[in-house]
Computed example of a mutant assay.
Amino acid sequence: MTRTELRKTWADRVAHFEASGQSATAWCAAHHIQPHQLYYWRRKLRASEKPQTPSTFLLPQWLPLEIDETSTDAEASVVIRVHQIVLEARPGCSPEWLADLVRALMSRC
């Protein structure tokens, strides 16, 4: 039996069990199936039906940065927000250190 056939067989069994209204123990005894197999396949089939939520695979999103070229403020800083964390990079800040810090924070979020 191929994997596809096995999955189809168990999907039919699980659907039959759920429609029966019987307890898992009673249904399994009547169909000569071990309860742990029914529970396993029921969990497996339910997990495959759930769509992947965006939070499962969060990737960094880069946003455009608008720079006002007319600003002459030499002490201006850049504020970076990552979820609830706020970073302020002031002039003279090491770009390598800042990049490492942002990468570390993104790997934790």
Rank of each mutant, 00 (worst) to 15 (best):
M1P: 12
T2M: 14
T2G: 13
R3D: 13
R3K: 08
T4A: 12
E5W: 01
K8L: 11
K8P: 01
T9W: 10
T9I: 05
T9Q: 15
D12G: 06
D12T: 08
D12N: 11
R13L: 14
R13G: 05
V14T: 00
H16K: 14
E18V: 05
A19C: 07
A19M: 10
A19W: 07
A19S: 15
S20L: 05
S20I: 00
G21K: 04
A24L: 06
T25P: 01
A26C: 00
C28M: 03
C28R: 02
C28D: 03
C28N: 03
C28G: 00
C28F: 02
A29V: 03
A30T: 04
H32C: 13
H32D: 15
I33F: 02
I33M: 06
I33G: 02
Q34V: 07
Q34N: 14
Q34F: 00
H36K: 13
Q37W: 08
Q37Y: 09
Y39F: 12
Y39L: 10
Y40Q: 08
W41C: 05
W41E: 05
W41Y: 13
R42A: 04
R42H: 02
R43M: 05
L45S: 03
R46T: 00
A47W: 01
A47P: 01
S48N: 12
S48M: 07
E49N: 11
E49D: 14
K50F: 01
P51W: 00
P51D: 10
Q52F: 10
Q52K: 01
Q52N: 03
T53F: 02
T53A: 12
T53E: 09
P54N: 09
P54G: 12
T56V: 08
T56G: 09
T56L: 14
T56H: 07
F57Q: 13
L58I: 04
L58W: 06
P60W: 08
P60E: 00
Q61G: 05
Q61T: 00
W62G: 08
W62I: 13
L63H: 14
L63M: 08
L65W: 10
L65Y: 06
I67Y: 05
D68I: 00
D68C: 04
E69A: 10
S71K: 10
S71Y: 03
D73R: 08
D73C: 07
D73A: 04
A74I: 00
A74V: 03
A74D: 12
S77V: 07
S77E: 11
S77L: 09
S77M: 10
V79I: 15
I80F: 05
R81G: 04
V82A: 13
H83C: 11
H83A: 15
H83P: 03
Q84K: 13
Q84V: 06
I85N: 14
V86E: 15
V86K: 11
E88Q: 12
E88L: 10
E88A: 12
A89Y: 04
A89H: 02
A89R: 00
A89E: 01
R90Q: 09
P91W: 04
G92W: 01
S94P: 07
P95E: 11
E96K: 07
E96H: 03
E96G: 04
L98M: 15
L98S: 08
A99I: 09
A99K: 09
A99D: 06
D100L: 06
L101C: 06
L101I: 01
L101T: 12
V102T: 02
A104G: 15
A104Q: 12
A104K: 09
L105A: 04
M106S: 11
M106A: 14
M106K: 11
S107D: 14
R108C: 15
R108I: 12
C109H: 07
